[in-house]
Amino acid sequence: MTGFPTEATAFPPGFTVDVFAAAFEASPTPMVVTDPRRDDNPIVWANGAFLGLTGYGRDELYGHNCRRLQGPATDRATLAALREAIAQGRAFECELLNYRKDGTPFWNGMTVNPVRDADGAILYFFSAQADMTHKHRLEAAMRDTNGALEREVGERTADLRFALEQKTALLHEVDHRVKNNLQVISSLMLLKARRTPPGEARDALQAMAERIGALSTAHRMLYSEGDAARFDVSAFADDLIADLAAAHEACAARVETEVEPLALPAAMAAPLALMLHELAGNAFRHAFPGGRAGRVRVSARRDGAGMELVVEDDGIGLSAGVPNPTGFGRMLVEMVVRQLRGTIAWSEAAPGTRAAIRVPLPAEAAP
């Protein structure tokens, strides 16, 4: 392939530069090579996937710097960090808003690595890239949806707060109706998911239906509590984890709970339900592939002025899992933890995964 760099390259017998170049050219991953030894570090090679991603021809790219893909909304801070990494000869990874030849913007996920000779001198910079536009659109849609839901919940809560505090019976009735409505919404989303072709949209509908189901469970438990303002976190966690285990009965993992009796404000029920659903549910779904046996453990205890909640498993662990760039569960957990003014620490449990959450408790929380 014309223009493909050949210096300081070693191949096994029969594996020539031409074979190597042909393999890169046939790759569906957009790839580009620049030469920092030339003025302005120009592009010296790009494969067909890169041309398809950008809309440019080779004659329009070769000899030009990659800034040709930049535009008015390209983040300058990220560009500065990229230039600094190139100047220092180190690898760099980012997602950058670029523009195709026709002016269409797209999110470009790229990894940039230096290519050195035997003496360590940099010959080229090689970058593998990916169109991340769909991921960003999904994230933006989720943020908009969450923002609208949060605003609606906030408005309704503000309207009802005074009356609910004065009338415990009304609060029970509201919990009962919310539970029923959430169950209806969850059922509708599950029905839509079943009628949606397999893929990201179906998975997203299924996941959201399950989350709404967890919220429905939280309201069911609040409705059954004698004290409308508080709930027992021990019984709450036992019931929620039992529901999760029943929903994932195909998983061979056993469930252990060790939760201290602690009366928490009713306002913490929904966030706690979401956290337990995401963390324990993720363990059931992903920690034990192939029907392997294992353990999922949930514990909670008072820790000074706060509560420590730990969800851990002895499954395959974070490093062995399949990366999911469009995943929403971990972001949701971290968002809920921030909402509760808490902290979360993810770690390998050797074996397995451990998530340790600490949230402050209001003064009225009682053992």
Rank of each mutant, 00 (worst) to 15 (best):
V17E: 14
A8N: 09
D313T: 06
R161F: 07
A91G: 11
A273H: 00
R83K: 15
L51E: 03
R354Y: 11
S347C: 11
G304D: 12
A363V: 07
E312P: 06
R292H: 05
T157N: 10
N98V: 04
D102F: 07
N108V: 04
L244P: 02
L340I: 10
L138M: 15
P261E: 00
F162V: 09
N65S: 14
S299I: 03
V233G: 00
T145Y: 10
L318A: 13
A22T: 07
P265R: 12
A235C: 02
N324A: 14
A209W: 00
S224A: 15
V336E: 00
F15H: 10
E348S: 13
P265F: 09
P265V: 08
A121L: 01
A266D: 03
L244E: 08
L51H: 06
P36H: 09
A77D: 15
A363T: 08
F328W: 08
P360H: 10
E278W: 05
R177I: 11
A22D: 09
S224Q: 10
A148C: 08
A283G: 10
L96S: 04
A242Q: 12
A77M: 12
V337K: 11
R100G: 01
A87V: 04
L361M: 11
P362C: 13
E25S: 04
A245N: 15
N146H: 10
D313S: 03
D59W: 05
S187V: 01
R151S: 14
L123I: 06
A283T: 11
A366K: 02
M132V: 08
N146L: 14
A246Q: 06
N65L: 06
L309M: 12
E249L: 14
L279E: 03
R292T: 08
M189D: 12
Y223T: 00
L190I: 08
T34L: 03
T196H: 12
P12C: 11
S234G: 00
M275K: 05
V178H: 07
L61N: 00
R194I: 12
E139N: 15
Y62L: 15
L264Q: 02
F284H: 09
A269E: 00
L272S: 06
A253L: 07
V337C: 12
A207P: 03
G52I: 00
G89T: 04
T257K: 04
D119I: 03
A356M: 14
P42G: 07
G321D: 14
A350H: 14
E165Y: 12
T6P: 05
